[in-house]
Simulated scan of single mutants.
Amino acid sequence: MARPASDKRERLTVAAVRLATTRGLAGTTLGALAEEAGVPSGSVYYYFKTREDVGSAVVEALHARQRDLMASWEAEEDPRARLAACITHHVATADDLQAHGSPVAAVCAELRRSGDPLATDAADIIATLVSWVAAQFAAMGFGPEAARARATHLVTGLEGAATLAHALDDPAPLEREAAHLGRWIAQTRSP
């Protein structure tokens, strides 16, 4: 029985994200995308006419993944627990981060270097995470500036440690930074 068309688009999008984060967007050719998704190369054109379409699909998929993660962390009642869930997620994905680095950071950097207008949309993924983290600090009683500064610190720590884990091919920097950030959150007292 043939799979529905929406399944094919989903498989192509998943494959595009995987390729973009392992080979870069420039290495995500339509032919490579067809091979990775296991679909005939001609059918790729039905869903993605250009490489720009592929880039847009990758950014949209990464943004959707980030929103889904934040929604799952919202299940926690306490803002400290929500932040701990965010940190725990990064540690749980340490093997992927070690192997490929942060997928969002990689895509953002590549789009920014190339001057692609999509870079702004990609950067919004990280900005959304920073805003979500700031909202958690605000819920803990911090004012807008202090909440934003703390959020920037936390996200920078996680993203930077993921970059080091990838560069050094060692998950230890991410594991150590996550442990440090976890202690920092646990010890943070409302102003």
Rank of each mutant, 00 (worst) to 15 (best):
C86M: 08
A71D: 05
R82H: 05
L62G: 03
F142W: 03
T50N: 08
V54K: 14
T120A: 15
T50K: 07
A138C: 04
D68M: 10
A92Q: 09
D96L: 06
D116A: 15
W132G: 06
T50M: 04
A138N: 01
A127G: 15
R67F: 09
V104Y: 04
V91Q: 08
I87N: 07
L111V: 05
H90P: 00
R112Y: 12
E52Q: 14
Q98Y: 14
V91L: 11
V130L: 01
T128I: 00
C108D: 13
A138P: 03
E76P: 01
D116Q: 10
S131G: 15
V133Q: 12
A64L: 03
A85C: 01
G141S: 05
A92S: 12
D53A: 13
L69S: 02
A99T: 08
W73P: 03
F48P: 03
P117Q: 05
I87Y: 02
A138W: 02
S114Q: 12
A85D: 06
A122W: 08
T128R: 11
A134Q: 06
A64K: 11
E52F: 08
Q136D: 02
P117S: 06
H63V: 12
V59E: 01
A146G: 09
F142N: 02
L97H: 08
A119W: 15
D116K: 10
A135V: 09
G115P: 10
T93Q: 05
V59P: 03
G141D: 04
R112P: 03
A94V: 06
P117R: 13
F142I: 00
H100T: 09
A106L: 10
P103H: 05
A119E: 14
R65P: 00
I126A: 09
Q98W: 15
D95T: 11
P79D: 07
A134Y: 01
A106K: 14
P144E: 13
E52L: 07
T88Y: 01
A123D: 15
V104W: 04
R51D: 02
H63F: 00
F137K: 01
F142S: 04
D53V: 14
Q98A: 10
D78N: 12
D124P: 02
V58M: 05
V59K: 02
V58P: 02
R51E: 01
I125D: 02
L111S: 04
A135R: 14
A122R: 01
P79S: 09
A105K: 05
R51W: 04
I126W: 06
L118S: 07
P117G: 07
S102T: 06
